[in-house]
């Protein structure tokens, strides 16, 4: 919380962004405390990782300091904030206490997930089964959201395949230690990403987190060896096709189950045994999610890194 206040007060944008990273990491720790391991994983990777990188690259492309806030806005903002804040606090007064096992939220829909999902879907991580199966349609939507963002950023910043003029090619190439460490790290990161991808059924993890980790490997590569080398490994056009295919894979799994006589996204019909079908379906859609997320993140990075202000 102290970090958040500091962020609010700082005029130095660079420091503010770094502090935001710390804030995000702290909230990830908070999520672990509150038993949300999957969420913590994601928040650490996304909030502290990707979002901060994006903010830093945006800063690099713009200016680093902020002008002080005029007094008039200050009061207006305080007014809005106080009204809303009091509103929420008023609302909390009738809420069940924190951690109360008898709160309605724990009694209505969720017990079904906790008690039945093992029998119906057959994987231990309830978060994964709710995510990919019970509320699979939400997750499809989420995949589309990230895809939309990638499309938007490409549309705005524009990645022209092959043009990498802005990043001084091989920015850090002469740092021998960096290069070697990076080379050592890369396979490990990629391996870890794959592990997270396919282990999501049993422990925390899944397509989304894996995608982010996978992308971060590429971003690391791009930072150390320069954008040219990174685009040589994964040309931006390929990345975009992969992103599109991920969404399509997810959606097509849905159509497939439609043709096999089930409802849209009903994995139970994919093979003879419904539980087995659920399993396969979840693996497939998680893979689709992973593809889209990784590819979208990489293309976001390309877009920022190769952006050249039009004169």
């Amino acid at each position: 919380m102290a970090t958040a206040i500091a962020v609010a007060r700082l005029d130095q944008l660079f420091a503010a962004v770094m502090l935001f990273g710390i804030y995000s990491l702290l909230s990830a720790a908070l999520f672990v405390v509150m038993d949300a391991v999957d969420v913590a994983f994601t928040e650490a990777a996304v909030g502290a990782g990707i979002a901060t990188i994006l903010m830093l690259s945006a800063l690099a492309l713009t200016s680093r300091t902020q002008r002080p806030v005029p007094r008039r806005r200050h009061w207006m903002a305080t007014g809005v904030v106080v009204v809303t804040g009091l509103g929420v606090i008023y609302g909390t007064l009738d809420m069940p206490s924190y951690g109360d096992p008898n709160a309605p939220a724990h009694l209505h829909v969720v017990p079904h997930y906790l008690q039945q999902s093992m029998a119906e879907i057959g994987i231990p991580n309830v978060v994964t089964s709710v995510l990919a199966s019970y509320r699979g349609y939400d997750t499809l939507g989420e995949t589309v959201v990230i895809f939309t963002a990638a499309v938007g950023v490409i549309g705005r910043l524009g990645v022209v395949p092959g043009i990498t003029a802005y990043v001084k090619s091989g920015g850090m190439q002469h740092h021998l230690i960096l290069r070697i460490t990076a080379k050592l790290m890369l396979p490990l990161i990629l391996l870890f990403a794959l592990y997270v991808q396919f282990h999501g059924d049993y422990g925390p993890g899944g397509g989304f987190q894996a995608g982010v980790i996978f992308a971060s490997a590429f971003i690391l590569y791009g930072l150390v060896f320069g954008l040219e080398d990174a685009t040589a490994v994964a040309p931006s056009i390929v990345v975009r096709v992969v992103a599109a295919c991920g969404v399509l894979l997810y959606a097509l799994v849905g159509v497939l189950s439609l043709f096999l006589g089930g409802n849209y996204l009903d994995y139970g019909v994919l093979v003879e045994d419904p539980t087995q079908g659920q399993h396969i379906g979840i693996l497939l859609v998680e893979f689709g999610v992973g593809m889209t997320v990784a590819a979208s993140m990489i293309s976001l990075f390309y877009a920022y890194a190769s952006y050249k202000p039009e004169e």
């Binding site: 969420v39 928040e43 509320r135 939309t148 950023v153 910043l157």
Partner: peptide
């Protein structure tokens, strides 16, 4: 602990980062 909010927030985090990326662009 209740898994449903976790799922929702996984989705919401993604939405958040997507918005951030677009806004920064």
């Amino acid at each position: 602990s209740n898994p449903l909010p976790h799922v929702l927030i996984l989705t919401a985090i993604v939405v958040g980062v997507a918005t951030t990326a677009l806004g920064l662009a």
